[in-house]
Every structure is written in C-alpha cells, then in structure tokens.
Design a protein around this nucleic acid. Sequence first.
DNA 1: GCGGTTATGGACGATGTCGTCAAGAACGCT
DNA 2: AGCGTTCTTGACGACATCGTCCATAACCGC
Lengths: 199, 199
Amino acid sequence: MLTAARDQFWTTGYAGTSMDAIAAATGLGKGSLYGAFGGKRELFHRVFGDHCDEAIQLANRRLSGADEQALERLTAYLMDHAAFSSDPRHRGCLLAKTTAELTEHDEVVSARSLGAFQAVQQAITADLEACQRNGDIDPAADPRQLAALLLAVHRGIEALGKAGTDESTLRNITETALAGLPRPALSPAENAGSPRRSA
Amino acid sequence: MLTAARDQFWTTGYAGTSMDAIAAATGLGKGSLYGAFGGKRELFHRVFGDHCDEAIQLANRRLSGADEQALERLTAYLMDHAAFSSDPRHRGCLLAKTTAELTEHDEVVSARSLGAFQAVQQAITADLEACQRNGDIDPAADPRQLAALLLAVHRGIEALGKAGTDESTLRNITETALAGLPRPALSPAENAGSPRRSA
DNA sequence: GCGGTTATGGACGATGTCGTCAAGAACGCT
DNA sequence: AGCGTTCTTGACGACATCGTCCATAACCGC
C-alpha cells in the first residue's frame, strides 16, 4: 500500500503526482489518505523516510562480512549498481530524484537525504577498513576519503545511467575507480606472501 | 527573457512550474508565450536545449588550451565545481535536475541530456590526452575511460553537493579522484627530467 | 500619416488538484 | 442481535492550471 504510493511518487515525482493518482494506485479513498497521513507532503515524508531506511539497510547488508571478501563485496556492490542503473526500465534512484527535486524546498527531505548518503558512505568506509585489514588497500590511505570518492562515483553512475549511458561504460567506470584505489606498498621481495582476495 | 523562464523551471522543476508563473517571471502574457513557443513542453525544450549548449561550451572553454596546463585546467574545473556545488545557495545543475525528473517521460530531453554528458566527457578526454602528451598521466591508460570516471565523479559531486555535503568533503573527493589517476611509469633513474605541471 | 500585419495581454472555459465532510460500511463489544 | 465507535469513501467547494481567443497596441512599408 505504501509501496504503491511510493511507486507513484517514484515515477512521476512529487510535484507531478496528484493525490487522486495515489488514491487510484493504492485503491484507497482520498479521505482515508488524508486521515491516515495528513496530506501529500506528510505522506511523501513517510514514504521517503522508509525508502531511505531500506536503502541504508541494503548497503549495510551488502557491504558487511568477513574481511577476506571485503573487496569482493565492494566490487559487487558497485558493479551491480552499474548494471542496475543502465537498465532502461530502471526508474532511477528515488533518493537521487527526490534530492534533485525537493532538497531546496523541504528541510525534512534535505536532512534525510544527507543522512542517507552519509550512512551509505559510512558503510563503504567500514568495508574499506576491512579491505585494509586484509591487505587489499594501502593501510596508509584514509578510508573515509576513499569512501567519499566511491560514493561520488556511485552517485555519478546513477546520474549517468539515468541519462542513458550504456552498461559497459558504467562498468568500466566502476573498474577504473577501483583500479585507482591505492594498493599496499609492497617491497619487491614480499610480493608472494601477502593476503589477497581470491580470484 | 528566456533566462527568466529557465530560472523558473530551474528552481521549481518542470512539473512544479506553471505557465502563469513563467508569464509573471518573464513579464509576458500567456498568449505571447503560447504564440511564440507552442506550449509548456516546447518552451522547456528550448530553454533546456540552450542550457545544454551553454554547459557544453563552458566545459570546452575551460578544458582546452596548452598541454602544459592541461592538468591544471582539469583540476580547476573539478575543484570549482566542488566549491560551486556545495554552496547552499546553489540550485543544483539544471541538467541533473531535468534528467532526474524528465528523462523517462520525454525523449527529447533524454537524448539531449545524454548528448550533453557525452560532449562534456569528450572535453575531459581531450584534456586528459593533453595531460598524457605532457607526461602528467600514464600514456598507456585509456583517456576515455579515465574521462568517464571523472565525469561520474563530477556528477556525483553534483548530487552530493545538492544533498548538503560540505565543501571540504567535495574538494577531498576531487583530490582523491585526481590522485588515483595513473602516473607515468618512471624508471627510478629518469625521475628528474620528465615534464610536470608547475606548482 | 495610414492601412495592414503582427505581437501582446489578460479574461475565459474546461479541466485538474487539494483538502474537507457527511453518509455509509465495517468492526468490536456486550 | 443491537449498539456505538471507528474507518472508508467518493462527492463537493475552492482554487490552480492549461491553452484559447479576441480586443488592443506596436510595428512596418508606403
């Protein structure tokens, strides 16, 4: 029911969605909607908040686990996002669309957007720290800065995918970004022994 | 006059902007608007097309010049964008907002968005090739892939800035991205002689 | 200066949209 | 079953919005 309302906002945006459309999509009468949520704005806040929570949980779930697979998880997370974003059926991230449309006009939305992005960045940071513990990434690097970069790449892929960029380009972007991460400085002698992800 | 209409669309989005609002903003009567452009959609196409052209021209202007300053230009382009995007008064890139709102619903907008992004990417590619000629970047690297990554970072910075990310974070992202570009492989002996950008 | 042409502007009808409300359905409790 | 309470609903008023239309103003060649 909330998902039907969310989908409606998702495809037509906040301003482009009428309460009648939501009533039709959910099967509820308009009176019920106003009674339950107060109004269009409040309903959207509810829907948007839930969506942010889900997105954060998803990132945390996909990026947490054993140190040995940390780089694998990160790669998969970004690669899947690239594949997903380039799908023409993809409506685009609701978080991105909402931020673009409403962040200047709605404090609640603005705060929640920023919070969501920071939470995802935090999840990436944690995963990068795991990569460092596993020897996949230079331990001297600041994982928060790398995470910020990867989040930016993540959001950039989202934006470019929505514009119609094809999948291989988006995957290449991900690969190039990951290739640019600082590797541990190995003295030539110790090439062999250090732990790396499995192929 | 077109800029007034553009600004109106820019701040309130396509769906959120009424023709009466545009009439008020431009000082023109509604009849004139419909007579001159045909309708809301056509007017927006005009405004959006002009804006894309300007954005492309700006990128080309800022990223072209002598090989010796190619890396400087690229750095400045991205850094300025980071500073710009984090300004709370910044309305956010019209190209990004429009792509987010309309790309699924309007073929014309979709095509023009993709074209604009590709044009900017091309400008970055050309600048990176200049960097390679100047010895700032590994000549073995594919400049188009690096450009795609930098464009993604550029768009990501835009998105994060709109969400409220502060300037220093966005600048750090830019620096981290630039630091991850592949440097020319120098044999230890020739460290001294190769051309680098001036500090 | 003048007739014809074009541009202008705001009133207008039709429709869309928001939020409310009273009538009715569903439900629980005794 | 009978009753009161809550939930649901679609019609409704007020207003916004779209696109049109015509009376008027500006402009042009002559």
